[in-house]
Write a protein that binds this DNA or RNA. Structure first.
Length: 395
DNA sequence: CATGCCGGGAA
DNA sequence: TTCCCGGCATG
């Protein structure tokens, strides 16, 4: 018995490998690498979206309602502001009024057609930021500047913002007026059975405060808690090339797009939903992301509030969100610090967009290979022998 | 480069 | 199913 094993060793693993390798078993592979991942994750995403959204309570009715709602709004926007600023956040009706915000065009530092060679986006929490309400946008201040207010001390009340969103654009606008993409931010109430969509943060906050939180006081008695109960939704009806770049208008979370963005499929008006969420109950919000697990992918479900740091994939380049969020709208939001919001990007209409799921990071422990070495390959667990996840030394 | 292992093909 | 490996991510 033992001897046998020893003998077996005489034909080295290499030899084995060589033999097998030589038979050229492999014929052309249909899909490789990122591509197959795309399709996979897309379907996954969609599945999850469906599942989650249906569990949101009043299944279909509500959902479709919202969708319709959303589409109406979008449509209105598109009509109203053919070339309006992507940052327009006032109600559709008013949109036309704020057309004169200049929007740096895709020249600004974007490479619409070549997506991110380094598509990593991240921001980090207030490490040395003294001001709690500053979202710390280290971002490409030049490439893409949604309506991130420059202010460092207390941004104006949302109402104000709402009224003068054009003003926030008067940064420094060297470029007279260019084509702006049609990006719209809406705010959706995530309260169960609600799902109200409003066009301003203030509005949605007020809504939540009064309707759901039962508070009567004015907007100034906000403690920022409402922030948790709505999601910010970005609709991009344009070619989306700029999609991700303008994350976080007035929401608790801050996102940064780093110059390059990924051109999404050109076909079909794509809608980009950007949703930031937090709080447990939001698990019901129609947002899911493929989380770390990959192989057994389907099993992974998004667990809110469990992590403040995750990465999701967007087309090929992985998009990494990290960090802490601070509420730009409220200077005092301690409650925030503890519960980090999670910002999630969900792609909806473009049929195929998203990237590979993030791969499980390599296990730390020793594995058969390390323990037994190549020479004793036959002592490996089968999984290791098959180049699967080790079953003997699991992490 | 070595390692871990996913995704998928072949038997 | 079982066995195997290309290829990629990660360290």
């Amino acid at each position: 018995m033992e001897a046998q094993k020893g003998e077996a060793n005489s034909l080295s693993p290499e030899a084995l490998k060589g033999e097998r390798g030589a038979d050229g078993r492999r014929t052309g592979r249909p899909l490789e690498g990122p591509e197959r991942d795309h399709t996979r994750s897309v379907s996954l995403l969609e599945q999850k979206r469906n599942v989650v959204s249906s569990s949101i309570d009043v299944p279909n009715v509500r959902k479709s309602e919202e969708e319709v709602d959303m589409e109406k709004v979008t449509a209105a926007m598109v009509l109203t502001s053919l070339s309006s600023s992507p940052l327009v956040r006032s109600p559709p009706v008013k949109v036309s009024e704020c057309l004169n915000g200049s929007w740096k065009d895709r020249g600004g530092g974007f490479t619409p057609s070549s997506y991110s060679s380094s598509g990593y986006w991240s921001w980090s929490g207030p490490s040395d930021q003294s001001n709690p309400s500053t979202p710390s946008p280290p971002l490409s201040a030049d490439s893409f500047k949604p309506f991130r207010m420059p202010s460092i001390n207390g941004p104006p009340p949302d109402d104000a913002i709402d009224e003068q969103d054009g003003s926030s654009l008067l940064f420094d606008e060297p470029i007279p007026r260019k084509r702006k993409n049609s990006m719209k931010v809406m705010f959706k109430c995530l309260w169960k059975n609600c799902g109200k969509v409003l066009s301003s943060a203030a509005g949605i906050q007020r809504h939540i405060r009064t309707v759901h939180l039962g508070r009567n006081c004015d907007s100034d008695c906000s403690d920022g808690e409402e922030d948790f109960y709505y999601s910010e939704i970005k609709l991009n009806t344009d070619s989306v090339a700029d999609g991700l770049s303008s994350l976080s208008p007035v929401s608790p979370s801050v996102l940064h797009a780093h110059s390059n963005t990924t051109p999404l499929s050109r076909s079909a008006p794509s809608a980009l939903y950007l949703i930031h969420t937090d709080h447990a109950y939001q698990a019901t919000s129609p947002v899911t992301i493929p989380s770390t697990g990959s192989g057994s992918a389907a099993s992974t479900s998004f667990t809110p509030s469990s992590s403040s740091n995750f990465s999701i994939s967007w087309q090929s380049p992985p998009v990494t969100f990290t960090g802490t969020a601070v509420s730009p709208t409220h200077s005092r939001t301690q409650s925030f610090v503890e519960q980090r919001p999670q910002t999630i990007a969900v792609l909806s209409s473009p049929p195929r967009a998203t990237g590979s799921l993030s791969r499980k990071s390599r296990g730390e422990g020793k594995k058969c290979r390390k323990v037994y070495g190549m020479e004793n390959r036959d002592m490996w667990c089968t999984a290791c022998r098959w180049k699967k996840a080790c079953q003997r030394f699991t992490d």
